[in-house]
Amino acid sequence: MESALEDIEFLALSANRVEVLDAVAEVSHTRRELQERTGASQPTLGRILRDFEDRNWVRQTDREYAATPTGRLVAAGFSNLREIVETEQRLRQVANWLPTESMTFDLRQLRDATITTPTQTRPNAPVQRVLGLLRDAERVEIVSHAFNEQSMNVVRRRVAEEQQTFEGVFSASAIDAIADDSALRERLLELVDLPGAELRIVDDDVPVALTAADDVVHLFLRDGDGLLQASVDTDDDTVLAWAHDVHDRYWNDARPLDAADLAD
């Protein structure tokens, strides 16, 4: 009897085997239908189906082939493994910077996420990505340990034009950094005074830099030295629900930002 790893290797070494098993796990197929779906030759299909029958993964009824209960189990498990590995491959370059201690959702929810990293020609690409989201959004929620000048300017303009509502929760250190710069302090005061904007402060550290712009969640990813390395954004419903929950928890624990917090 073959080991589990040998059966996994047997399936994984042939894209045609995976495609055939997925197909018959969904619905019964004739050999001609399987050939049209996979592009495999009839001799190749014959070998695959015989190997599957030997493992009791597939059963032939009349002229059609269907997965057995154990065949469907293998198909589902292999599909699950493939999804996990594909997600890991996409996230591999940024995995060390993800705020996983705050992320309560399955990382597979990020399998279709957009990953933006700095390049030699676009060193500010992650910031430009979030600015594009902010320019189009009608509702913005932010929880962050920083509030960069460009984002603040976009939000201030959009809210002033009554095209956006804004609820931001920032660490006290983020607000202190703005207050130390007279020009930035004046712009933030203008934002605080706008009826469509509300900002709050938390005294504790904020481990995420999260923006929910309408139905898109954007995360800035920084290394241990605080340097921006990448950003990830997604419109996945589960991640969006998580982002709203994070914002609500920080929002409820925060205190309103007022002019006194920005005093010279």
Rank of each mutant, 00 (worst) to 15 (best):
E2C: 11
E2K: 11
E6I: 05
D7Q: 15
I8A: 14
I8Q: 13
F10M: 14
S14H: 02
A25L: 05
A25G: 02
A25H: 00
H29F: 13
R31M: 13
Q35R: 15
E36G: 15
G39F: 05
G39I: 09
S41H: 10
Q42S: 14
G46K: 12
R47S: 12
L49S: 09
N56Y: 04
W57T: 03
W57I: 03
Q60L: 06
D62M: 11
R63Q: 11
E64A: 11
V74R: 02
A75M: 06
F78N: 11
F78P: 09
R82Q: 11
E86M: 09
W97E: 11
T100G: 10
T100N: 08
D106H: 09
D106V: 08
R108E: 04
Q109Y: 12
Q109L: 05
T114V: 09
P118S: 00
Q120H: 13
R129P: 02
D136C: 12
D136F: 08
A137L: 01
E141P: 09
S144G: 04
N153V: 11
V154Y: 09
E167M: 13
F170W: 03
A172E: 12
S173T: 10
I175M: 00
D176C: 06
D176E: 09
A179I: 00
L184V: 03
R185C: 01
L188H: 00
E190C: 05
V192G: 03
D193W: 03
L194Q: 08
G196P: 02
A197F: 01
A197I: 04
E198R: 13
E198W: 10
D203A: 13
D203W: 14
D204C: 12
D214M: 06
V217T: 10
L219I: 06
G224K: 04
L228F: 01
S231K: 03
T238M: 10
V239L: 07
A243L: 01
V246N: 03
V246E: 05
D248I: 06
Y250S: 01
W251S: 09
A254H: 01
A259T: 12
A263C: 05
D264T: 07
